[in-house]
Nucleic acid binder design. Structure first.
Length: 458
DNA sequence: GTAGGGTTAG
């Protein structure tokens, strides 16, 4: 009895230490406990394993399984659920599937969580059809889908561009008496916003306010992010203040959202104050916060300080991602160091991050702005994949340089392929052609734009 | 002991 209680205590301690990412402390705790005769159980190892999955690596997590077996404890369904989630976060789909098979081979029965996790995995990998198959399997098994399952479905649909399907599912569930929870509302508000359906998002927020659920910090952060997206910066920041007044505390997400918005409108000093507040409140910096800080330093023009941020990030055992490198390239270009930006692009290639579309888009735009049109077009032609950012930027910049016919040609190819391009870029081409005396060409282009818009509705 | 919100380029 006493032993059992001690193990439970040990597990609670380990869980709380793991939460703060202090894995070494967790290990010391475990060694001390064993020395005192308190034996770890499957929960202890699962907690450790999950932390290694989240904060270190898959290999480190697999090493815990090994230790578990040595201690005579068999992994259970929770162990595998953690591993499956981990391999998906790392985007190793084949590992995920192997793990699922391994679990079945070991006669460990998957639970609802396992199916939820696997479904979530497929959605994250951009495979909604596969995710749906998992859902069908879950329904056909002896298990019942829960609110959590539906939330993962709705989220997956939203994130894969099927926000309307998500909304329809939501309404159907409501009709069948499933009461949506706060998570459901938060997911849909975010999904609708990201799809540009502001009115529907606002209606969803109103609907949430009429339920018994109270909006939480996540709801607020989501709504603020929506405001920023439609450039209502002041309104967004006001909502943040209201959130604080209602007793919600900020976490890393809230702070980074606020700082990101402030940087966009050039309120660098205020952004610095929010960043300081974040650190003072003991929020540990993760990769996203480091990226936000890095962006802040670049916008201040303090490239030396930016360099220090990168070093600090690496010191924490983190690795820069696509955002980090794009911010660096943007920072170098803004400071007028085009050569340095090129060197950094090469460095990215060496690191295997050569296909960073955002960084290339950024580079093209900055090359145009620095007057290197030839270089910019060469880079544009050499790119294997391009998106709406690439085209909008090139069309805009060609117009600025008075090359309206070249811009028109690119715009037409976008209309044909269905690539969405900024309205302002389209307008620039039309008015450019008109003003430089090519009224007939402008008229022709105008009708093609109109036709493309009509066709896009079907 | 899952799932939801945050950082880049026009």
């Amino acid at each position: 009895m006493v032993g059992g209680l001690s193990t439970r205590l040990l597990n609670i301690c380990i869980a709380s230490v793991c939460k703060t990412q202090q894995l070494q402390r967790a290990e010391v705790l475990l060694i001390d406990a064993i020395r005192l005769g308190v034996l770890p159980n499957v929960v202890t190892y699962n907690t450790l394993l999950d932390a290694y999955c989240r904060f270190v690596s898959m290999d480190a997590a697999l090493a815990v399984i090994h230790r578990m077996r040595e201690a005579g404890i068999s992994p259970d369904v929770i162990t595998y659920n953690s591993l499956v989630a981990c391999s998906t976060r790392k985007r190793s789909l084949s590992v995920t599937l192997d793990l699922f098979d391994e679990m079945l081979n070991l006669s460990i029965h998957p639970d609802r969580w396992s199916y939820n996790t696997l479904m979530h995995c497929f959605f994250r990998l951009g495979k909604p059809d596969e995710a749906y198959k998992v859902f069908q399997n879950l329904v056909l098994s002896e298990l019942t889908p829960g609110q959590d399952t539906f939330n993962i479905l709705i989220n997956g649909l939203c994130k894969n561009g099927f926000v309307i399907h998500g909304l329809v599912l939501f309404r159907n569930l409501q009709r069948h008496g499933v009461v949506p929870d706060l998570v459901t509302y938060n997911l849909l508000i975010d999904g609708l916003c990201k799809a540009g359906r502001w009115k529907a998002a606002k209606a969803m927020l109103m609907e949430l306010l009429e339920t018994d659920e109270n909006p939480n910090a996540i709801t607020y952060t989501t709504v603020v992010k929506c405001c920023f997206k439609v450039r209502k910066y002041e309104q967004g920041l006001e909502i943040f203040l209201r959130m604080a007044n209602q007793g919600h505390t900020f976490d890393g997400f809230g702070y980074c959202t606020a700082v990101g918005g402030l940087i966009k409108i050039g309120k660098i000093e205020e952004a610095n104050q929010w960043m300081d507040r974040m650190v003072k409140n003991g929020i540990g910096l993760d990769l996203v916060s480091f990226n936000t800080l890095l962006n802040l330093r670049c916008r201040e023009g303090r490239l030396d300080a930016a360099n220090t941020v990168v070093k600090e990030l690496e010191k924490c055992g983190l690795e820069g991602d696509a955002y980090t490198h794009t911010i660096i390239i943007d920072g170098l270009c803004r400071a007028g160091d085009i050569e340095g930006a090129y060197r950094h692009l090469d460095k990215m290639k060496v690191l295997g991050l050569g296909s960073n579309l955002a960084a290339l888009n950024c580079m093209i735009d900055r090359l145009f702005k620095a007057g290197h049109m030839g270089e910019a077009m060469r880079l544009f032609d050499s790119m294997e994949t391009k998106d709406d950012f690439t085209y909008s930027s090139v069309v805009h910049n060609l117009c600025k340089a008075g090359r309206f016919h070249s811009a028109s040609k690119i715009l037409l190819s976008c209309l044909r392929s269905g690539t969405k391009i900024l309205r302002s870029a389209q307008k620039a081409v039309l008015s450019g052609l008109k003003e430089s005396g090519y009224r007939r060409d402008a008229k022709k282009l105008q009708s093609k734009i109109y036709m493309a818009r009509v066709l896009a509705r079907y």
